[in-house]
């Protein structure tokens, strides 16, 4: 039981993620979470503004069901399958983040410094989440997929476009984590 309640090691988690991909393929679908953002656009009425959204969203309702499941799964995991263990981060990471003003790194899944009610009440905090969301929504659709569609499914099926996309993910991610984040959270 203890091994379930503790964080799972990477060599268990990785193969289990590919089980998700395999199950969806077995059901005749493809693993791709960012497609749901497009489906939600269509449902809200984006098809009136661009033909890109003129799709039959009902064909995607299976994927929205996966989203509902994922929300429930997140709830179950923290409520019933977790203990108080802290994310076992590299001490150097913790020191570095401390210098940027992040306290208790790893005690929660996301930093309070960005996601707490207090953080999102400030214009800067709110703006960060909005900009982040915009970049994710715009970028994934431009690239035609995200981590599930390109990094997991695309690379598993040895597709070159997905390799280019994943290289892109890392270009963006490295620039943000190494050059922009320290600037945003510079302790003055």
């Amino acid at each position: 039981m203890e091994s379930i309640l503790n964080p799972w090691p990477w060599y268990v988690s990785g193969p289990l993620i590919s089980v998700v991909m395999a199950l969806l393929l077995y059901f005749g679908k493809t693993f791709g979470m960012s497609s749901n953002l497009k489906t939600l656009c269509t449902i809200i009425g984006a098809d009136k503004f661009s033909s890109f959204f003129k799709t039959n969203w009902k064909e995607q309702s299976w994927n929205l069901t996966v989203v509902v499941g994922a929300i429930i799964g997140g709830f179950i995991a923290v409520q019933f399958l977790s203990n108080d263990s802290v994310t076992n981060l590299n001490p150097q990471t913790i020191t570095e983040l401390k210098e940027m003003g992040f306290k208790n790194s790893g005690a929660t899944l996301v930093p309070n410094e960005m996601y707490s009610l207090e953080a999102i009440s400030s214009p800067k905090g709110l703006l960060l989440l909005i900009i982040g969301g915009l970049l994710v929504g715009f970028g994934t659709r431009y690239a035609g997929g995200c981590t599930s569609g390109h990094a997991i499914t695309g690379l598993s099926s040895l597709q070159k476009p997905s390799l280019i996309a994943v290289i892109g993910f890392f270009i963006g991610g490295l620039i943000m984590a190494n050059f922009i984040l320290p600037y945003i959270f510079k302790v003055s």
Binding site: M33, S34, N36, L37, V110, M114, L128, L129, I131, G132, G133, L134, L135, V136, G137, F138, G139, T140, R141, Y142, A143, G144, C146, T147, S148, H150, P161, S162, I164, A165, V166, I167, G168, F169, F170, I171, G172, G173, L174, I175, M176, A177, I180, L181
Partner: peptide, 19 residues
């Protein structure tokens, strides 16, 4: 793929979550 991917990467590392 390279431009869209990079834009997504910027957002991914900022908010720490993908879709």
């Amino acid at each position: 793929y390279i431009i869209g991917g990079s834009i997504f990467g910027l957002g991914w590392a900022l908010i720490g979550a993908c879709p």
